[in-house]
Structure formats: C-alpha cells, structure tokens
Nucleic acid binder design. Structure first.
Lengths: 194, 194
DNA sequence: GTCTATAGCGCGATAGAC
DNA sequence: GTCTATCGCGCTATAGAC
C-alpha cells in the first residue's frame, strides 16, 4: 500500500458517486471514471474488482455520510420544525451543489433496481428505512411539542415525506429546478402547520 | 403497409414500454425487445429508425393514454376526494399490474434524464406539468366544496402530490411493495382531511 | 416487412510487464 | 499500483437479399 492508495481510492469513489447521481449506474463506467480521475480504466479494478462491488462501496459511504449528517441534526438542540427544515436542506444542497443535475444517490439507484445485485438492493432498502425512521422521530417530537401537526402515525408520515423528497428531486431536475424544489418543500412545511 | 404493420408496431411499443418501466431506458435494447416480440432486432429499425425516436413514441403514447384516463376522472361526477382516490389508483394499478416491479414510465425516465435527447426531455416536462395541473384542479374543487383541506395554493400542492407519487413508486418497489404504497397514499389522504 | 450479415463502438474484466 | 494489450460480449445502426 503506497501513500497514494487512499487518495486514488477516494477519488474513484467520488467520481463514481457523481456519475451515478447525474447519469445513473448504467451511465457510470470504468471508462467514464478514468476520464475524471487520471488513471487507466484497467487500474480501477485494483481498487474495486468489479462494478457491483464499486457500487456497493459508493452506497455504503453515501449512507454513512448522509445518515451521519441526519444524526447530527437529531441530536442538536433545534426545535422539531428546525430539524425538519435542516433535513430537507440536505436534499436541497445535493440538488444545488450539482447545479440542479444531481439527485440523491439512493433515489437514482432505486430507479435502476433491476440492474443491481442483491447486496446493493439490501443497502438501498436499509437507507430508505433509516431515513424514514429518523424522520418519524422528528415528526413525533414535533407533535408532542405541538410544533408540527399532522394526522396518522409518525412512521408512515416519515415514509411519505421521504418518498416525496426522493420524487421531488428528479421532477425538479426536469422542471422547476432548485426553485421548484423549494416551492414544493415550502408547501409541505406549510401543511405541517408552519 | 401490410396488415401486420400496426400490430407489430404496437407490440414493439408495448415491449419497449414494459422494459423501460422495469429496467429503464438503458436496460431496454433492440435485442431485449426482439426477445419479447418475435422479430429480429434489425427489423425493429424499419418501424423506429433510432432508439431515441422509439423512446419518444413510447412517451407520447403513454402520456396520451395516461392523461386520457385522468381526464376521464376529471369530467366524472365523482366528488373531489373520489377523483383524487381514482387518480392515485392509476399509479397503484401500474405497480400492481407490474407485480410490484413496474413504476411510472415518466418517473423512470426522469431518473435517466441525462441519457435522453431533447425531444424526450420536453415530453417528460410536459407530462409532469399536465399531471400537476390536473391535480390542482381536483384540489381546488375539493377546497371549494370543503371536501379537501390543505394550506397554500392548489398548483403547488398538485406538484407536491405528483412528486410524492413518482417517488413513492420506486421506494415501494424496493421496500414495502403495493402494501407500503397504499399505506403512504392512505396517510396522504388522511392529511387532506379524509 | 423481415431477414442475414456486418460495421464500429463501448463495456467489464483479465493477464502480465514494469 | 499502474500500465499496455486483449478477450468476448452487447449495443445501435446500416446494407442489401428476399
């Protein structure tokens, strides 16, 4: 292991992630990665033996980082509405930083579910559940403190809001952009009593 | 034009649509179509000169048929909540008929936006707007008749609900299935005062 | 209208030199 | 760790026979 390995490995993961978020798993190839990272496509196999393994690593890293940010929001001293706003902000940031061309990694891969291996599908399912569960905690907290209002159980409401956010990203990318996304999330918050 | 042309053309469109809804545009190939329709892959080019044109035709037909069903709901004598339930039912039927593996054609293609030609992207954008607009009409009607309750303008609410439905299909396909989809849409209706 | 044959490219993956 | 070279496959698309 030379001093460059970690950096090359990270650079490959970065390139793969961005390519998946913009073009999908089928639009991400060893060739396209080699154009971004200054390395020959055959060399990528040294770091990631197969494309399936590479995709799994990208999902794992993305899930870890994203849920880490979410947990940071959960343990903060913000009000429930504040936490919800910050949670939605994570999705908006993805759209904004990608110049309106990047969507959630796991939302994109959800569309390509049939092309993925079983390990990747399991990782996606876990990402969905973990997000819905954390949203449910915020919602339950908000209802208790009477700062958020909605009907039905918080778990299902968490699933609903998560699905909406995953759907709103590709829709906004095609029409409305970051502005359209913000309009929709604003409407959501308004209907939660904010 | 022999007597078979229309049927072959339709069979190709049917196969292409189903393949896109399950595997995406990148997972739909002339080869995979030829496996379903009993025809050689080169022969497909007689009916659709390029893959881009084929995709455009599939979107056009899907939009026409889907919006036709929606318009049928709009002109019916159902109450606004009844219309909304039937509209949501169109999405649930897609998921159910595809054995939980098929999502909305235009939701799938929205994820693959970067791989599509400009005409296809414009058709998608129109589909999104047309759906949101029709939802807005149902919502406005429901608010006037006090059968649906929500805050903010109906247009934005229409965009929100449409994005939710497009997001809920791939999420439910990965986790929860038709049952999970129904749970989320039930929660939505509950929060609109039903 | 449908066929066979093929061009031309990009893909994932491997072998082996350095 | 990265390279060159190559294999075998699937892809879109075209030419030309029938």
């Amino acid at each position: 292991m030379t001093s460059m390995q970690r950096d090359t490995r990270t650079a490959i993961l970065d390139a793969a992630q961005e390519l998946i978020q913009t073009h999908g798993a089928n639009g991400m190839s060893y060739q396209s990665i080699s154009r971004v990272v200054k390395i020959r496509k055959a060399s990528i196999h040294y770091h990631f033996p197969s494309k399936d393994k590479l995709i799994e690593e990208v999902i794992r890293r993305y899930s870890r980082e994203f849920l880490g940010l979410v947990d940071g929001i959960l343990v903060s001293s913000d009000s429930a509405p504040g936490k919800l706003r910050r949670y939605i902000g994570l999705f908006e940031t993805t759209l904004r930083n990608g110049a309106g061309r990047r969507v959630c990694l796991c939302g994109m891969l959800g569309a390509e579910l049939a092309s993925l291996g079983n390990p990747a599908v399991s990782l996606l399912r876990r990402f969905y559940r973990d997000n819905a569960k954390r949203l449910a905690r915020i919602l339950e907290d908000g209802r208790k403190t009477r700062t958020l209002s909605f009907d039905g159980d918080p778990e299902t409401m968490g699933e609903l809001i998560f699905s909406f956010l995953e759907g709103a990203m590709p829709v906004a990318r095609a029409d409305g952009g970051v502005k359209g996304f913000g309009r929709m999330t604003g409407q959501l918050l308004r209907n939660l009593g904010l």
